[in-house]
Amino acid sequence: MIHFLPQRKNLVFFKNLLLRQIRQDYLENLTGFAWLIIQPLVLLAVYAFVFSKIFQARIPESGGVTFLPYLAVAFWPWAAFSESIIRASGSISGNSALIGKVAFAAELLPLASVSATFLMNAAGYLAVLVVLTLIGAPVHWLTLPLVIVLMLFWWLLAAAIALVVSTLQVFVKDVAQILPPMMTFWFFTTPIVYSAEVFPERISWLMNLNPAAWFVGWFRKLLLWGEWPSQWPILLVPVVIGIAFWLALRFFRRFAGHFEDFL
């Protein structure tokens, strides 16, 4: 039986884990809280320089949108996604002091890790959007509520993947080495630094099966053009991602009681 309704004590525990994770990963660095905003902006400046000055990258769609906002709006959600999965993949093996010593809902470990990364990146994303507006890019702030809703599903997808990879890493230690290049591969097969229209006709259907491509496309359409998504996948998103998460949670719980044997 899978219980979706979290118990009260699990909520308290989750909150603890989340705050600790944020503190550990972000706030206790020498550089402190300021980096949270500065780092994405520095990164943005680097990308702006590399792609628009060196590569002279252009995008097919126009409407007053230049390459920099086109990249930035897609890049931050991806960064949150990829970073959260990679960080969370070690959340079981990294917490062996808890696993096997006390009884608790172990799925909270990867979930808290993913959530912490998403929250921190959301702060950076907001900073980037503000800067884009200031430099004159057409950011459609009114679509923000829908962006947030989509972001929640984007987070849920990351959580589902994190549940599976953090389980796998307990059994197959090589996952820690395999995962980052796989995420890089996923990054380049997703239209983030380029436009989806560069795909040849023959394989574009295949590329459209990539959920990351859906989300990236929607974030761009909403924030830069203010267009509401009309493609069919958006109706499927809650269903597909909901099922994926449910399966991932079942998978995780099947193994959760055995982690200690393998750590």
Binding site: K9, F13, A97, K101, V102
Partner: peptide, 30 residues
């Protein structure tokens, strides 16, 4: 449960931090 020395304390974190975590696991709310 008080199963072994340190019962689920994480060495990197402060005592207070671990107390909070342990209390949450035992079902104490804030």
């Amino acid at each position: 449960p008080l199963l072994e020395l340190g019962a689920g304390f994480q060495p990197e974190f402060s005592g207070l931090d671990n107390v909070r975590m342990k209390a949450a696991i035992l079902g104490l709310d804030w």
